[in-house]
Design a protein around this nucleic acid. Sequence first.
RNA 1: UGGCCUAUGGUGUAACUGGCAACACGUCUGGUUUUGGUCCAGAAGAGUCUAGGUUCGAUCCCUAGUAGGCCAACCA
Length: 557
Amino acid sequence: MVKESKNFIEIIIDQDLEQGFDPADLCFRFPPEPNGYLHVGHVKAIVLNFELAKKYKAKINLRFDDTNPENEDQKYIDAIKENISWLGYSWDKECYASDYFQQLYDWSVQLISEDKAYVDSQSSEEIANQKGTPTEPGKNSPYRDRPTHESLSIFNDMKNGKSSPGQHVLRAKVDMSSPNMLMRDPVIYRVLDASHPRTKTDWVIFPMYDWTHGESDYIEQVSHSLCTLEFKPHRDLYNWFLDQVVDPKKIRPKQREFARLNLSHTITSKRKLLFLVESKIVEGWDDPRMPTISGLKRRGYSPEALKNFVKSAGVAKRDNIIEMSLLEFCVREDLNKKCNRMMVVQEPVKITITNLENGYNETLVVENNPEDPNAGSREMLFTKTILIERSDFMIDPPKKFFRLSVGNEVRLKGAYIIKANEVLLNENQAVTEILCTYDPKSKSGSGSEESKRKVKGTLHWVSSEKNTKVTIREYDRLFAHPSPGQFPTDKLHSILNKDSMSVHTGHAELALSKSKPGDSFQFQRKGYYIADKDSSEELLVFNKTVSLRDNWKNKHK
RNA sequence: UGGCCUAUGGUGUAACUGGCAACACGUCUGGUUUUGGUCCAGAAGAGUCUAGGUUCGAUCCCUAGUAGGCCAACCA
């Protein structure tokens, strides 16, 4: 399985434990903002937190960081919960930052009373101008020394809807000359004219992230609050806010930061993902090319594969870009064990077996999965005319071509050995039909001497008389660039892979027609495919998850 | 011209907080195989950003550089 060496977070936790922290007090949380769909980057945060909870037998909350109603929606809350459950995790408590609005408000009043917060009545531009730059200190707001009772009164008016958005904000009184820009009197409350998915219009003032997050951790008694590296500068503020309210007898949460996961050839910015959806570059949030959990699921990636992927990627503090090949390895590894095999011919060429009478048909029994003895077997129909993959025959084969050519033998998987005797071509010299003879004694599994005969190639095939047509959608990377994340949204178009999706027709063995959306198969010698929700009674639609490893193709490219 | 973080094979992560760098993916051989899949065996590939220092000994500690990242939203 995955390596057992500890990551730096586990080392920190173990140290805390050694120093006397009660293991029963360990508590984690996964805190998404419900303003979009979860993606592969979130999978890392989910797995990190939930696996930590599992390992240390600790509690873990799912907390929606719903402090900005402008882009938040109940549909995202629902989708996020569904995604996490699909990954196989369950949380102890389902929490909402909005449930703490009253507490946060009360604490804010306390802050004002203690002269640690004030109402600023300047515009956001004015406030920004006074903020200084990373190299120059900021200037105090003219409202910084506004009398406490005045701030208290305006803040109360804000809460009661008596001020419009932008008119006043509440700011923490920290340090306008701090080298950390976040400490320069951060805004902690603003007035917003938007209906919140949960509190609706009960509240018109909304707490900012920094003021909310640490206090929410504290309210929930989260012991280790894990977030990504870009929040490192927020840690000072996180601690400052905690200092204002913390009861020393309670658990004081600790923020620690890890590097986010970046996957080569894909983007994980919610804004850019939204752009792909809105500009119709993809067909929706669950388009199989999307790195969203819903997209990954629809593409055919299993929860186990995804979890194993982020576990093998590890947790550290440096920026990284993980190669797609690792993800692909993880899916193949998982699917290889679990998927039944099926035969599907995509670009067919007809074979006629000349030493079989017209109308011949024989039912063969074929094993479902050589990796799983319990997977059983299925029946396949063998007839006088069959279909093989056009690429499995060559008129003028190169030296190490193990497949069919005139004068050569191959085995039809689960059936007989055939030999090609003659090719029929059309006026364009394209192959229209291959005439073969079969070796009747070579039947698979018959136990005869001939059935064990070795031939270099084995082909998948399907009866040309009895098969079922299916639609196959093949996907490729969405971007031609290995790190599309570095491009701004308006440049994304220029690095798009125009051929990221193609649609084909496949000729499948009859057994496949029983599949239901969500069923995954290995199409023998091709790859892994999952039946899509777009399937109908008449026509099954499959999405290609990933191809099989292919040494032959690699060498000949 | 501020603060903080990071720096190990192509990629990612390790190395018992000082004892001449390991694992996985990828690549390349060979074997097995009724999937050019799987499986098995093996190989190549870094001497740990640079320069000093401490030490018998440094990927690990110190100093100074260099490179990359993050921070100036009434976003999270």
